[in-house]
């Protein structure tokens, strides 16, 4: 089991803080055994995540700034980056509206079959991405029962992003909405505020950090998407080719430097998102 549990008995008179640590800077000082556990955990985390991600950035920098710039401004690559970021932004916008609406319906409405909706929200998260592509292809592909065929077009990229990013805004907004105090809303309504005014002036300010955190996660997920596009978008250069596919073709052509340069763009986006979400979550905790 966990290495961290082998910590030796701590003297009760330990000067450590009495309360459970939930903030950084709070908690017990490391004992020898827990320090060892931390060391082992960090070793694994470094070997698996930190060193490989550093290798991406180092490899990208080896070509120098002009080499890096040349790679990412290559016409085909730049088109892929524009398509990916643009579509991810658009999808995030849709998610902000629809995700909040879905969270609202799940928390405030009651009807038969609501649990089915709960399950549907999480399915894109658990479904293998290649299967997600196939799933979308069966309704929006060549044999669509609706007569809508988006396969190998830009709307396919939009659709795939929309599918895989569905849970993020819903799942960050839902718990905040559920714990919201209804009294202020009732007071405002009794003073004659319309439903929309109540939502805009009372509910929205409280859930905005959650919406923003969900939006950031959804953007990051969209930008990094690969699997669901493979069968759906056709990966046509300049048209439906996204950044991940561009990186993969560089890898397959044994151009690891080029792949690393483009990958660095995605990594920087991920890092910005992580920092943004971290800040927003701190704000959420403070409000809660």
């Amino acid at each position: 089991m966990s290495v961290a549990t082998t910590a030796g008995p701590r003297p009760e008179t330990d000067a450590g803080p009495r309360h459970a640590a939930s903030d950084s800077g709070v908690g017990y000082p490391l004992t020898r055994a827990s320090g060892l556990g931390l060391g082992l955990a960090m070793l694994w985390f470094s070997l698996l995540v930190l060193i490989p991600l550093t290798a991406v950035m180092v490899t990208a920098s080896e070509a120098g700034w002009s080499g890096f710039w040349g790679t990412i401004t290559n016409e085909q690559t730049a088109a892929a980056i524009r398509l990916t970021v643009g579509t991810a932004l658009l999808v995030t916008l849709v998610n902000v509206v629809m995700g909040t609406a879905i969270a609202w319906v799940l928390v405030r409405d009651r009807f038969v079959g609501q649990r089915v909706l709960e399950i549907l929200i999480d399915i894109p998260f658990a479904l293998p991405t290649i299967v997600a592509g196939l799933v979308l292809l069966s309704l929006y592909g060549p044999k669509s029962p609706l007569g809508i065929n988006v396969a190998n077009t830009r709307p396919a990229v939009f659709l795939a992003f929309l599918f895989v990013t569905l849970p993020f805004v819903v799942r960050t907004v839902q718990p905040v909405l559920a714990e919201l105090d209804r009294e202020a809303e009732e007071a405002a309504a009794s003073l004659g505020a319309s439903r929309f005014t109540v939502f805009r002036r009372i509910v929205l300010p409280s859930i905005t950090p959650a919406i923003a955190a969900g939006a950031a996660l959804s953007f990051a997920r969209g930008v990094s998407e690969y699997g669901s596009l493979v069968l759906l978008s056709g990966n046509l250069p300049h048209k439906t080719e996204v950044t991940s596919v561009r990186i993969l073709s560089s890898i397959e052509n044994d151009n690891l430097e080029g792949a690393a340069a483009v990958a660095t763009i995605l990594l920087v986006i991920s890092l910005i998102v992580i920092v943004t979400v971290d800040i927003l979550q701190r704000r959420l905790v403070r409000r809660g």
Binding site: V49, P52, L53, A55, V56, T129, L217, A220, R221, V223, S224, E225, Y226, G227, T243, S244, V245, I247, L248, I251, L256, A259, A260, A263, L266, L267, S270, L271, V273, I274
Partner: peptide
């Protein structure tokens, strides 16, 4: 971080 890194970038790394 691993949740928001592209799977292709993970593979490349």
């Amino acid at each position: 971080l691993p949740l928001s890194v592209s799977p292709i970038v993970v593979g490349l790394a």
